[in-house]
Nucleic acid binder design. Structure first.
Lengths: 110, 110
DNA sequence: TGGCAACATGTCGTATCTGACATATCTTCT
DNA sequence: AGAAGATATGTCAGATACGACATGTTGCCA
């Protein structure tokens, strides 16, 4: 299991427990990934609440559908910068962003 | 006044009022820069509280003295990713980070 | 079953970021 | 003044992230 695969796994769905369980990630690496996941989930939730598709969001924030998909999937090729800039462009306030960041990603099971 | 110079100015010291005053930055760009500034100031404050110099911090987080200097200056060549990863490696918790992010940078005058 | 819209995945050329190094500018001693 | 430690600035080659495009997959309606 190579590094990219790992990050994809972690990124893609997975959050019963923490990102670092049975993956050899350091604490700070795990926390970083969890922050990205939280923002990614928030992005998807906000988009859906507004009844927008990924293509529309892409236009609003000046990107492409595929990149929006990767943002929502917390793909390793997506930076925290991009996630934050995207949410800000969608009108999310710093304080809201910060709150999202302080919480871990929601468990997959409701 | 070119773009790099502008960002340097904003980055370097400056926070009487907001980043966007008399600079033609959009709201989301300004907020993004303010977030970086807040983290940069926090990094410097924490380093000083621990009586470390930039070289020592560089060793801890696996970087170089010059990059640490740029982080603390919120240089445009420094990403949010790098600032966040650095603070996490210094042991700062997600919640603390989030709180720092939610506040604007402190005014230069105490 | 076909068709269509939404979303996911893979790849690529370019742009931006990173650690490292060299060097300049403080700051604080004596 | 001069030396020494700390911090700032400039630059660069390699690494990583970016938007874009093509294509694959999924879900739904008729």
């Amino acid at each position: 299991m190579d590094d990219k695969t790992k990050k994809r796994l972690v990124a893609a769905g997975w959050s019963t427990g923490d990102a670092r369980d049975f993956l050899e990630l350091s604490d700070s690496e795990a926390e970083f990934i969890e922050m990205k996941l939280a923002l990614a989930q928030d992005l998807r939730a906000r988009r859906r609440r507004r009844h927008l598709n990924q293509t529309q969001v892409a236009r609003i924030v000046g990107s492409s559908q595929s990149r929006v998909a990767k943002m929502e999937a917390a793909d390793p090729s997506v930076s925290l910068d991009l996630l934050v800039k995207t949410l800000l462009k969608l009108g999310v306030a710093r304080a809201e962003l910060a709150e999202t960041l302080s919480q871990g990603p929601k468990p997959a099971v409701g």
